[in-house]
Simulated assay, not measured.
Amino acid sequence: MSRFKIYQENCSDVTVVSNLFIDEYMKDANDAQLKIYLYLLRVMGAGHSTSVSDIADQFNHTEKDVVRALKYWEKNHLLTLEYDDTKNLSGIRLLDVSKRSSDDVVSLAPVVQLPPKQEALDAKPAFSKPSYSLDQLKEFQNKEETAQLLFVAEQYIGRPLSPSEIKTILFFADRLHFSEDLIDYLIQYCVDKGKKDFRYIEKVAISWAGEGITTPKQAAKFAVKYEKSVYDVMKALGKSGIPTKAEADYVMKWSKTYGFTKDIILEACNRTVMATDNHRFEYADSILSSWHKKQVHHKSDIKALDEAYAKSKSAAPKPRFKNTDQFSQFMHSEYDFDALEKEILSN
């Protein structure tokens, strides 16, 4: 087919969207996230004010859906949420997609009370599971879509679901707003990892909800990111289970911010395991931060640092001891590994 141009006769009433946003951000955002971001651009361009409730009414979403979308874009560094002294959302600063800075602010009426920004990112109370009644459970089970979903879940698990497990699936749909497709993918994903315990499945679901995941495609991309990096580090440090946000942030820091390759990160993990049983992520971070400052780029650089350290140790004058008590005192003061570990973690 022939190619064609797209043009417009009158461009006076337009909303400008960055090409970088279209190329890099649109493909991963869900319907609600896209609508809300474009609407914010529209409101800013017109110089109007709005509120969470207004946006919810505009697109027939819940206020929680709006807040979740705003947090998603804040996490992707396309906007910053601003709060007043009473912790009400008072403004949204839309950041330049390419420069990550802008003075454009959309004024929001402080009608919905929200936690401070840092607490808002880490808070989990919105995802707590309620106590469902038998009537609610029966109503859920009687839906045609639900009956099919429960049947598929039983095939994955390999046995009939208990009432408690059915309530957990109800929680996914009712409170986390997961679609049937996403719940299907969630259970399949966990079972493929050898995890059929619904407590584990629930933790995964809550972590996905906290990341703003609403589609199987988004979940798959999120899972791949963790599979390739975070879980390898977790295993190397002798940890199992679902990584916490703080643990995942450490791995992203080492790989993205410091630019370390996998072999260097795993080398730090191996040294950490040999040195301590506690605070291993923090201990490994102290090692990798030191290597970053010393401009380590390859394992050969680590070897050079080790050789230099060993050379300095051998060249240092050896202390002389008059008696056993002095020797014991020296060993305690100079080689107190517990104190050394605390010192490393405090830096």
Rank of each mutant, 00 (worst) to 15 (best):
Ala209His: 05
Asp96Ser: 15
Trp208Met: 13
Tyr226Trp: 13
Thr244Lys: 07
Val112Ala: 01
Gln141Tyr: 08
Val296Pro: 03
Lys342Gly: 12
Asp85Glu: 11
Ser162Ile: 08
Ile242Asn: 06
Gly238Pro: 09
Val273Trp: 00
Lys313Cys: 01
Ala220Val: 03
Asp174Trp: 04
Val112Ile: 14
Asp285Gly: 08
Gly212His: 11
Ser53Trp: 07
Val105Cys: 04
Ser131Ile: 10
Lys253Cys: 06
Glu144Pro: 00
Tyr309Gly: 00
Gly194Leu: 05
Ile92Trp: 11
Gln295Gly: 03
Gln295Ile: 10
Lys311His: 05
Ser179Val: 07
Ala123Phe: 01
Lys5Gln: 13
Val112Asp: 02
Leu149Val: 06
Ala69His: 07
Ala56Glu: 13
Arg280Phe: 05
Gly194Lys: 03
Gly194Glu: 10
Glu139Asn: 11
Asn142Ile: 02
Glu282Cys: 08
Glu211Trp: 03
Ala173Asn: 15
Ser289Thr: 08
Glu82Pro: 00
Ala308Glu: 12
Phe151Asp: 14
Pro116His: 05
Ile157Lys: 11
Glu74Asn: 12
Gln113Ser: 07
Pro319Val: 09
Asn270Glu: 15
Ser49Tyr: 14
Val106Phe: 05
Asp301Pro: 08
Ala209Pro: 03
Asp184Ile: 04
Glu180His: 14
Thr168Tyr: 04
Lys318Thr: 12
Arg280Leu: 06
Met26Cys: 14
Gly210Ile: 01
Pro125Arg: 05
Ala173Tyr: 03
Asn30Cys: 14
Asp325Phe: 01
Tyr335Ile: 03
Gln141Glu: 15
Thr324Gln: 07
Asp23Ser: 13
Phe321Tyr: 13
Met234Phe: 10
Leu150Ser: 04
Tyr231His: 15
Phe4Pro: 00
Glu267Ile: 00
Ile166Asp: 05
Pro130Ile: 12
Thr257Tyr: 13
Asp104Glu: 14
Lys27Ile: 12
Leu237Met: 02
Tyr156Cys: 09
Ile92Gly: 02
Ala315Asn: 08
Lys228Arg: 12
Ser2His: 11
Leu40Gly: 10
Ile265Cys: 06
Tyr231Phe: 14
Lys138Pro: 01
Val230Ile: 14
Phe21Asp: 05
Ala219Val: 01
Arg320Pro: 00
Thr146Trp: 09
Lys99Ser: 13
Glu180Trp: 01
Arg320Ser: 15
Ile22Phe: 06
Ala205Trp: 03
Ser12Asp: 06
Val52Gly: 02
Ser179Glu: 10
Met234Trp: 05
Val52Asp: 06
Gly238Tyr: 05
Lys87Pro: 00
Gly47Pro: 08
Asp65Tyr: 06
Ser164Tyr: 04
Trp208Ser: 04
Pro163Thr: 06
